[in-house]
Design a protein around this nucleic acid. Structure first.
Lengths: 108, 108
DNA sequence: ATATATGTTCGTAACTTTGCGAACAAGAAA
DNA sequence: TTTCTTGTTCGCAAAGTTACGAACATATAT
């Protein structure tokens, strides 16, 4: 009898993917990656949504571990969490490769 | 004045990510990738959820373009949509690389 | 003490997601 | 025709997401 529960790995990939599952959050991540300064205000300015909503999206990215924040009163500086970023990257690469799906094993 | 709308690329990455944002759907994709046969029943057997729910998840993956189905009465055969899979893979790779985030540009 | 600047949190509304069992559909078999 | 098998769709409930403005928090400047 096989175990039907999801693996930790599956949960982790899904968790990262879910955090990336909104265009605003993708935009935030891309913006953070190319900036030397990364204050909340800069991020907000870049997006077509209210600051309360931006804050909410940032919280989700932080909860997923993809970014981190640092208070520099009166501003807040955000940036990619590079450790977890590498983990996510590796998980996704592995995932896409494991699902390489040989020609013969697929419906045409 | 900068354009604050999301790019097509951002929307597309988010769309794929969202489809992958649930452990059941990750499990389905991984299962499909390693099977030569891939009937609905096999997938359902592998998961801890009711068939109605499995069907729903499969529909979402299909809508996102990550899988495709084919009726083989009375069964339904599912598989990875390899064309879109390659597109998704490329988008994610590009995304993770573009967000490489040089040491100097991040808060420590 | 008040005012200003910057973000977060609260409260709320509308919508979406996840999950289930029951009902349905479609073809094969009895 | 009736029954069986296989999946999908329906209807519903519970929970989560997305978005906003208003209120709040905190530290600095006046």
């Amino acid at each position: 009898m096989t175990n039907k529960d999801y693996t930790v790995r599956q949960e982790q990939v899904a968790r990262f993917a879910k955090a990336m599952g909104h265009p605003a959050r993708i935009a935030i991540l891309q913006f953070l990656a190319k900036q030397t300064t990364c204050y909340f205000g800069d991020i907000h300015e870049e997006l077509p949504i209210a600051k309360a909503t931006v804050s909410q999206h940032l919280k989700e990215l932080k909860d997923a571990g993809l970014i981190q924040g640092e208070v520099e009163t009166p501003k807040v500086k955000y940036c990619i969490n590079r450790d977890n970023w590498q983990i996510a990257k590796a998980l996704f690469c592995e995932f896409f490769d494991s699902c390489a799906c040989k020609k013969e094993s697929c419906c045409k």
